[in-house]
Design a protein around this nucleic acid. Structure first.
Lengths: 112, 112
DNA sequence: CAAACATACATAATTTTCTTATGCATAAAA
DNA sequence: TTTTATGCATAAGAAAATTATGTATGTTTG
C-alpha cells in the first residue's frame, strides 16, 4: 500500500472484502481493482500485497488455485469459510475504528 | 495504541488534534483523555505514546514545558505553529483515508 | 502496615506491516 | 528494441506499534 498514505493494518481487510465480493481474484487483479475503486488514491504495492496474501493463506483464510491464461500464470485466491468469518470481524473492526477515531477528530458537541 | 486494534499511523494525528483543542497537555493526561473520549475503545500504551511525543517534538511540531505538581514531574506539550499546520494536513489525510477505504468497504452502488 | 493501584516519565526488545529495490518471465506497444 | 503491461516473488530496511521493564511518588485498601 502506498501513496495515500497511512494506516497500516487495513490491507488484509481490503483483500478479504474484495474476495468476498468477487469470489475469486488474482494478485495483479486486486491491485488494479483497488486503483479503480479509489480512483488512484490507493496503490497496493507488490511488496505489500504478496506477503499479505501468503499470510492470509497460511492462516487458512484463503485458498489458491493456479491457472494459466495466455501463457501467463495466475494464482487465483478465494475465501475459505474461516476467511469469510474473518472478513466479517475485520470489517466490523474497521468500522468501529472509524467511528472511534471520528469521535476524537470530529467530536460531537455535548448535548445541552 | 492497543486493544481496538489496528491502524498504525493514527496516533500522532490524535495527539496533534488533542493538543490543538486543549492547548497544553502532558502524556498521562493524553492517555486518559483518549480513554474517556472513546469510552475505553482506544488505549494508548506508554510504549507508543512517549516515542511518538518525542518524535513530534524532534520534528518541531511540539514544544515542551516542565512543571512540578504535587511533587510529581509533568512534561506539558503544546503545538508550535508548524505543529498546527501539521495537524491540519494530518486530519485532512485521515479524512481522505476514511473516505477512500469506505469506497472499498461500503461501495456505493453505481448509478442507473 | 503492606500491598495494590494510580500517577508520571522512560527505554529496550520484538513484532507487524509497510516501502523500496530487485529479480524472473511473457507479451504488446512505441 | 526499448518501454510498458501483465504476473509472480523475495530481501533489506523503515516506521509504528506491542510487550516488558524500570524508576519514582502518592493514595487506597485489606
Amino acid at each position: 500500500m502506498s501513496n495515500s498514505k497511512l494506516y497500516k493494518g487495513s490491507l488484509s481487510t481490503i483483500i478479504l472484502k474484495l474476495l468476498a465480493e468477487t469470489h475469486k481474484m488474482y494478485g495483479y487483479e486486486i491491485t488494479q481493482k483497488v486503483k479503480e475503486l479509489t480512483q488512484g488514491e490507493l496503490t497496493i504495492t507488490e511488496g505489500a500485497l504478496y506477503p499479505a496474501l501468503h499470510k492470509l493463506e497460511a492462516n487458512g483464510f484463503l485458498e489458491v488455485e493456479m491457472q494459466r491464461v495466455d501463457n501467463r500464470l495466475r494464482k487465483y485466491y478465494k475465501l475459505t469459510q474461516a476467511g469469510n468469518q474473518e472478513k466479517v470481524s475485520r470489517i466490523e473492526e474497521l468500522e468501529r475504528f472509524i467511528e472511534t477515531i471520528q469521535g476524537i477528530v470530529n467530536p460531537k458537541p455535548s448535548l445541552g
